[in-house]
Design a protein around this nucleic acid. Structure first.
Lengths: 157, 157
DNA sequence: ATACGTGCAAAGCGTTTGCATTTCT
DNA sequence: AGAAATGCAAACGCTTTGCACGTAT
């Protein structure tokens, strides 16, 4: 059952925010309005937003936060392990709020990345890379190719 | 048999350069000294060089080429399908000269990416994603975690 | 009270681009 | 000869940083 992953639902969102608050307390990092704005925004946006997209989304909500703080907050979220940096082919940093195992369809033309679930390519156990002194924390399949929209464009030419 | 992939050997390099020249001819793109400099440099550098690293390497060889041309040549190599853009977590574009199937160990601390071969996680057939209108061209496993060097640093703290 | 976070604007850095000149086919 | 690539320098866009001020613990 391949499927494109739906946005993070309300319940998961609540749980993730609680998790974030817990980690802040553990790390002795103060909970500020701004950090809350950023976590909420990231969890609401599906598919690997850039820092600027997170900022734009916070502006739509009329939240009081500056662009610099968005960048700083995102970095602290990564440090706390609440989100990760997504591996993209482009030159802009993108973030991934989805921590559960999933895979990526990467379009080599437009750079778009889509989250998918496909048990047939999901590993039940993380491969052991200790031979290389490497500790594996997660494992994603990157399926690179051309998306529907870009294939249409190619045909027109 | 997991193993870290060795640099591209002399024979493969010759073959890849010939391939590049053929594709240039087909596409009606002139073969210039500069483009030759860039292909050679990329094939000699293992592990996902940035445009600037390619430029630096060309300077070491005392080749006559400007930084802008390195950027432009790399893009044309990607367009011709001679190399691909690597999917990295960072904010700098990195290129991948290795076209044969392989996988990546990505360090979430330092961003380093290592090419590995591991038949146990190599798929003999590309998964079918046509349900999504997506045409898969290649498929890589991304094993994300912490490398030996960064684990040492963490322990010290 | 103090350490840390924030906002603003400026700096930094990788990358792209306009234009005159050179080089390839 | 004509089209395309190159080099240079300036422009551009994303990200980081220094500093004065505000806020959480």
């Amino acid at each position: 059952m391949k499927r494109i992953l739906a946005p993070i639902n309300a319940e998961t969102k609540r749980r993730r925010i609680a998790e974030f608050e817990r980690r802040c307390r553990e790390a002795g990092i103060p909970m500020t309005d701004q950090r809350r704005i950023v976590v909420e925004a990231v969890l609401d946006m599906h598919c690997h937003p850039t820092a600027d997209q997170v900022y734009a989304s916070s502006q739509v909500r009329r939240a009081r936060i500056s662009r610099a703080t968005v960048y700083r907050s995102l970095e602290s979220l990564v440090m706390l392990g609440v989100i990760t940096k997504a591996c993209h082919p482009g030159d802009v940093v993108r973030y991934d709020a989805r921590l559960e195992p999933h895979h990526h369809l990467v379009c080599l033309e437009c750079g778009e990345v889509v989250d998918i679930a496909d048990p047939s390519i999901t590993m039940t156990r993380l491969p052991d890379m200790s031979v290389f002194g490497f500790e594996v924390r997660d494992c994603r399949m990157q399926l690179r190719g051309v998306c529907r929209r870009c294939r249409r464009k190619e045909k027109k030419r």
